[in-house]
């Protein structure tokens, strides 16, 4: 009887402890979102109130209406779609075969060079790239941003794909070669279809990182070629600190990535740990 009680108490303690830990870790991240949501739904007067109001009496939907009505929001949205889409697509075209090559040739040094490119602060690429794009006369277009986003997206794709291809049994490719396939046929008809989950994950992560990128846009984008994060930042400077519309815009910008993450979180976790457990 006491034994049972002890076990029950321990179980309860265990559960409470876990809950406290989860709340401690998650709540700061969640709090930002909730506060942003609250800001975006309040009039300026409530936003400036002291003590702070979390749930307002009146909802200011106009903040959201304002986001879409002004500031060329749709243009910037489209810019973001083009830059992220093109940077991700190009990264897949380049990165998937590169990851395959590195995994099969065990070219660890190339993999490390790519990792270093990823770890180097983006700013160090910016000045030379800016000069090059100016010289090429591309600064008014989206091309420079697409190209420089590759600095972010290509390493992500390559590294995730290396993990995936390393776990693909080599016998499958050998079987295909004996069945009569050449190297490209083997890659296209056997290896690539098997790596589909990896491709999806690397695509999602590439989209997230590219979509959220801010610093490249700040330097390289003109008035017509801004992406969403830059556009939101510009609201901050022009309209002083009008928190409501700013928070509404920020939420709208974050929303696509947020939805994508929630939908694909299982795959993202699987993709990030791919290769960690051999044969798992």
């Amino acid at each position: 009887m006491t034994h049972d009680l002890k076990r029950l108490a321990w179980k309860a303690f265990d559960r409470v402890g876990t809950t406290i830990c989860v709340v401690l870790v998650v709540s700061p991240a969640l709090f930002f979102f909730l506060w942003m949501l609250s800001l975006s739904l309040k009039y300026e007067i409530d936003n400036g109130a002291y003590p702070p109001v979390f749930i307002p009496d009146r909802i200011a939907w106009q903040n959201y209406v304002g986001v879409f009505a002004s500031n060329n929001f749709l243009l910037y949205f489209w810019n973001s779609v083009v830059v992220t889409g093109a940077a991700t697509l190009l990264a897949l075209v380049v990165g998937v075969p590169a990851g395959y090559g590195i995994a099969r040739m065990k070219a660890e040094r190339s993999a490390i060079v790519i990792m270093i490119a990823r770890m180097t602060p983006g700013l160090s690429f910016l000045i030379p790239m800016f000069l090059i794009f100016q010289w090429l006369g591309l600064l008014g277009t989206l091309v420079p941003q697409v190209i420089i986003h590759l600095v972010v997206t290509v390493p992500i794709v390559i590294w995730i794909m290396i993990g995936y291809f390393e776990t693909t049994p080599i016998e499958l490719e050998e079987a295909a070669m004996i069945d009569g396939a050449g190297r490209w046929q083997t890659f296209l008809r056997v290896t690539l279809p098997i790596a589909k989950p990896g491709i999806v994950v690397s695509m999602i992560l590439s989209v997230i990182f590219s979509w959220n990128n801010f610093i490249f846009g700040v330097v390289l984008a003109g008035r017509e070629t801004r992406t969403l994060p830059v556009a939101v930042y510009n609201m901050l400077s022009f309209e002083q600190v009008s928190w409501g519309p700013l928070a509404a815009a920020a939420l709208v910008v974050t929303l696509p990535v947020l939805v994508l993450t929630v939908l694909a979180q299982r795959q993202i976790v699987a993709g990030l740990t791919a290769g960690a457990v051999k044969g798992g």
């Binding site: 016998e171 499958l172 050998e174 004996i178 069945d179 098997i194």
Partner: peptide, 13 residues
């Protein structure tokens, strides 16, 4: 030639 592998090497997809 045709080969049968230890782990079968069937195309999983």
């Amino acid at each position: 030639i045709a080969m049968v592998f230890q782990n079968y090497a069937l195309y999983p997809h």
